[in-house]
Amino acid sequence: MKIPFGLHRRIPRVRRVLEMLASATTERDALREDLKAALRHIEVIQADLAGQKSVAAPRYPYVVAIPDQALGAVALRMLSLLRPMDVVGKKLIRKGRPNDGGYLMIDSGLDGVVAYSLGINDDVSWDLDMAALGCQIYQYDHTIDALPKKHPNFHWYRTGIAAQPSADGVLQPLGDLIARNGHAGRRDLILKMDIEGYEWEVFDSMEPSTLAQFSQISMEMHTLALAPHDLQAKIASVLEKLYASHQPVHVHANNHGYFGIIGGVPIPDTLEVTYVRRTDHQFTDCKRIFPTEQDMPCRKDVPDFFLGALGALPAPTVTEPAGTSVSKAVHGNS
């Protein structure tokens, strides 16, 4: 077939267009493959990040740093008010389950007494150990419908502990409950408290005479690192109140929560602390390194928080309330 001259002149141009189209198609297909590979790589990265989050978020506690020197100064005072000492002639024993829920207490005045257990949730291991010593256990928790286990020595009430009674009667001051149970004036009571931050208002409003009824107090303290200025001031005030009548003898950080660097001062957000009444004992300087061999991490999958030689902290300067002798109780027996 004879190709018209005008069309013949266009053949090279059409050929070049076709070649360009073929090249563009090849490049497009290559780009598509590159895009698919990139998307597959992104999916792998996203899956890897999702896997890391699923492991890291619950596995490791958070560290919070607040560069506030005023908060740091109060945090340092709080630690000095929590400075542990050893009890002369007594040893520490564990009551409650391993890890979270157990407390170290001194082996004195635990048999056959009355114990108050504030905050139960799903754990009565401490209560069972105390009941095994013949103690009557008065338990208060308004957030549960029933105890996880029962014991003849348990007396559970669906009542919460607060500074003031609530209108519906669900919340009650601890001093009122002690009086209602016929324990007013007794000085052999034991207290275990874990009420998720409400301890500060409870102790702040508690009469010193009620506080003095407890020969030992094992408790969990919350919001030590994350407290704003106003709450931190209240916490320090409550610690001074406790320090006036009771001496810290053991401290352990709960590694479920935050660890704070507050104004340069390292302090856990949650601490387990055991106090004993000053007038019952003599004390000597504590040279233990915390955590001690008797301690167990609250979370088994995370290392315990290292607190070091807390007993080496300087003793706090306190104004002694009338009728007390904090300096003699602490320093005279060192």
Rank of each mutant, 00 (worst) to 15 (best):
M1H: 03
M1W: 03
I3G: 00
R15T: 07
V17S: 02
V17E: 07
V17A: 07
M20F: 13
S23K: 15
T26R: 15
E33P: 01
A38Q: 13
L39Y: 02
R40Q: 02
E43L: 09
I45G: 02
A50K: 14
Q52A: 09
K53F: 07
K53R: 10
V55Q: 02
A56W: 07
A56G: 01
R59E: 05
V63I: 09
A65D: 03
P67N: 15
D68H: 12
Q69K: 13
R77I: 07
M78D: 14
M78A: 13
M78P: 01
L81A: 14
L81K: 15
I93K: 00
G101K: 00
D107I: 05
S108I: 01
L110I: 15
V113P: 04
V124K: 10
W126K: 05
L128R: 08
D129L: 00
M130E: 10
C135M: 13
I137P: 03
Y138I: 14
Q139A: 13
Y140K: 12
D141A: 06
D141R: 05
A146W: 09
P148N: 10
W156D: 08
A163Y: 07
Q164P: 05
P165E: 15
P165A: 13
L174P: 10
G175N: 10
L177Y: 03
R180M: 07
I190Q: 00
K192Y: 03
D194N: 12
D194G: 08
E196G: 02
W200Y: 15
F203S: 12
F203D: 11
Q213V: 11
S218R: 07
E220I: 13
M221F: 15
L224K: 01
L224F: 08
L226N: 08
A227S: 15
P228T: 01
D230R: 11
L231G: 06
L231I: 15
K234S: 11
E240M: 09
E240R: 15
Y243Q: 09
A244I: 10
H250M: 07
V251H: 03
H256Y: 07
I262R: 04
I262V: 15
E272Y: 02
E272D: 07
E272V: 00
V276W: 01
D280S: 03
Q282V: 02
T284L: 04
D285V: 14
T292A: 00
D301N: 09
V302H: 10
L307F: 08
L313V: 03
L313Y: 02
L313H: 04
T319N: 06
P321V: 09
G323V: 07
N333Y: 12
